[in-house]
Simulated assay, not measured.
Amino acid sequence: MPLTSSSRLSPATLALLLIPPLMWAGNAVVGRLMQGVVPPVTLNFLRWVLALLMLLPLAGWVLRPGSDLWPHWRRFALLGLLGVGMYNSLQYMALKTSTPLNVTLVASSIPVWMLIMGRVFYAVPISRRAAMGAFMSLCGVVVVIARGDLGGLLSVRLVPGDLLVLLAAVAWAWYSWLLARPPANEPTAIKADWAAFLLAQVVFGLLWSAGFTAGEWLTMPALAPGDSAIQWGWPLVAGLLFVAVGPSLLAYRSWGAAVGRVGPAMAGIFSNLTPLFAALMSATLLREPPQLYHLAGFVMIVGGILVSSRR
């Protein structure tokens, strides 16, 4: 939806639009830094445990026995599975074999999967312009996955991380459609309170994540005597605090406020700054400078989404 007044992009609104992609890029970089410090699925579980503790003082009422949450528990259990239990677990797992820049670039294809899922499951038509934009974005994803070697694309060997982040993108697209098409009887008190709405998802998402974490530990290779799967110390504590506060609470709150001010189309354009921020952070903190194919993929993905979002 086009802007109707210059006040919509005031400094405060611009900050709201920039905070989420900055936090999401930081999430990918911290997830990479935590490799070898804590198992990836366990990292996701600990992240949301801390987020739950921070949300309880803000919206603990939603968990009371008489709350409107419980008659609608199936919906929030599904939202918790996709948005809390799966999406970030898959991203953290992907970072074992892929870079933060690759992960954020491939995740930028989420609008494409939303178009496809909307057409298949919700009978939402795809315009010619949207199809063209989706094709451009998918080409950008292919460039990144192929590491720029389009000539040898048929023989390219995908790293597991590329496939995991594609699965994460599909899960997030489904999650987004569930948010966009809520049931008519969704409780308004929960929906109107961002903290209550997030807490309702997190409480069920943690149950899913606990099950996934148990599976991770049961299938973990045996450790040598004296070794520990979790390296407790200040790096882990700092990383957990960042992913619990920044990508979980601050980004979620800023995203909701930004969408309310400028609409989802404009906010979606800003969200595609995530790979750019990830590239800058990776080069600075991880000594993983971006390659030319990253730039080509970024241009094609963002270009495709810009084409799709124009009237």
Rank of each mutant, 00 (worst) to 15 (best):
T4H: 14
S5E: 14
S6G: 10
R8E: 15
L18W: 03
P20F: 13
W24D: 02
G26A: 11
R32F: 03
R32W: 05
R32C: 07
R32S: 14
G36S: 01
G36N: 04
T42H: 00
R47E: 08
V49K: 02
V49Y: 06
L52M: 15
L63E: 08
P65D: 07
P65W: 09
D68I: 00
W70D: 02
R75V: 00
F76Y: 15
A77R: 03
L78F: 07
L79K: 05
L79P: 01
L79G: 03
L81C: 01
G85H: 07
M93F: 04
L95N: 03
L101D: 05
L101H: 06
N102R: 07
T104W: 08
S108D: 13
I116C: 02
I116P: 02
G118H: 06
F121S: 03
Y122M: 08
A123D: 07
R129M: 08
A131L: 15
M132I: 12
A134G: 15
F135R: 05
M136R: 02
V143L: 08
L150Y: 11
L154N: 07
G161I: 01
G161M: 00
L167T: 05
W174K: 05
S176K: 01
A180T: 11
A184G: 14
N185H: 13
P187A: 11
I190P: 07
A192E: 15
A192Q: 15
D193T: 00
V202N: 08
L206N: 11
A210C: 11
T219G: 12
L223R: 13
G226I: 11
A229M: 04
I230E: 08
Q231K: 09
W232V: 12
G233D: 06
W234Y: 10
P235A: 10
A238Q: 11
V243G: 02
L249M: 12
A251Y: 05
R253P: 01
S254E: 04
A258E: 03
V259I: 15
R261W: 03
P264Y: 01
A265C: 03
A265P: 04
A267F: 00
I269Q: 14
F270R: 05
F277W: 14
A278L: 10
T284P: 03
E288N: 06
P289H: 12
Q291K: 14
Q291F: 13
L292I: 15
Y293M: 14
H294N: 13
G297D: 05
I301W: 02
G303L: 07
G304T: 13
L306R: 05
R310F: 14
R311S: 12
